[in-house]
Simulated scan of single mutants.
Amino acid sequence: MLFFILSTIGKVLTKDEKRDRAIMARIKARDPDALSELYDQYNRLLFGLILSILKKRSEAEDILQEVFTTIWEKADMYDLERGSVYTWIVSLTRNKSIDRLRSKVYKEQKKQSTSLDDEDVFHPLYPDKNDPLEDTILTDRAKRLHAALDKISNKQRKVLQVAYFNGMTQSEIADEYDIPLGTVKTRMRDGMMKLREILAKELEL
């Protein structure tokens, strides 16, 4: 549902898609050095994404390892002629994170719930000063992304947040937070359109 956001953000956050595709071609050819290069390029950004979803460092570390293991084992699943490498690996990372979030074991371990009224959902607080997510956020590109998120309404931003980071469907959001389904759809549509417009302008800078 939020796939276009991934694609647009990818164009803002990545520098060289041609390089990434070359790396993926080498991974398909079973070059372990290529996997190391891809890891060096994206591990901090992906770790930040996973941590934003799971809120647990140990879980995030496990999922990050799973992601790159999957990239190595299933590199043939990526079609060099379709889509960006960034979009593929971020989608893979999000899917694995959501699967863990929804797993029975993780639900039993997690004692807190995310609220639409929680202002930390887009700007979570992490105690470690040298946290990889914090380092990523401090980059110019990540600053522009957060600035774009700040430009849409709180209601739009928070509905998109629980849909993306919590993996909730529109119907689940409506039921969980007692919001009419039509309202949820409108907020998500308007929010995504606004983000598309803002991020497209970023690409022109």
Rank of each mutant, 00 (worst) to 15 (best):
S97E: 02
I98W: 03
I98L: 12
I98Y: 03
D99K: 11
D99C: 07
R100N: 05
R100G: 06
R102P: 03
R102G: 14
R102H: 15
S103G: 10
S103V: 05
S103L: 06
S103Y: 02
K104P: 04
K104G: 03
K104C: 04
K104M: 09
V105W: 09
Y106P: 01
Y106I: 09
Y106F: 15
Y106D: 04
K107P: 00
K107E: 12
K107Q: 15
E108R: 13
E108H: 10
E108V: 12
E108Q: 04
E108D: 07
Q109V: 04
Q109K: 11
K110G: 00
K111E: 08
Q112G: 02
Q112K: 13
S113T: 13
T114N: 06
T114F: 11
T114R: 07
S115Y: 06
S115K: 12
S115V: 01
L116T: 04
L116Q: 00
D118G: 01
E119V: 13
E119L: 12
D120T: 15
D120L: 13
D120K: 14
D120A: 15
V121A: 07
V121T: 09
V121S: 02
V121F: 02
V121W: 06
F122M: 10
F122Y: 06
F122L: 15
F122R: 11
F122H: 12
F122A: 00
H123G: 02
P124G: 08
L125R: 10
L125D: 15
Y126G: 01
Y126H: 15
P127I: 06
P127M: 07
D128V: 00
D128A: 13
D128E: 12
D128T: 02
D128S: 10
K129P: 01
K129I: 11
K129A: 05
K129Q: 07
K129M: 10
N130W: 04
N130H: 09
N130L: 12
N130G: 08
N130D: 13
D131V: 02
D131I: 05
D131T: 04
P132L: 06
P132C: 03
P132G: 00
P132M: 00
P132S: 04
L133T: 00
E134R: 11
D135A: 12
D135Y: 03
D135E: 13
D135G: 05
L138H: 15
L138V: 03
L138Y: 08
L138G: 13
L138Q: 13
L138A: 10
T139V: 09
T139Q: 03
D140Y: 12
D140T: 14
D140L: 14
R141F: 00
A142I: 01
A142V: 00
L145R: 09
A147H: 10
A147R: 14
A147V: 09
A148G: 02
A148T: 01
D150H: 07
D150C: 07
K151Q: 13
K151L: 11
K151V: 03
K151M: 10
I152A: 02
I152R: 01
I152V: 15
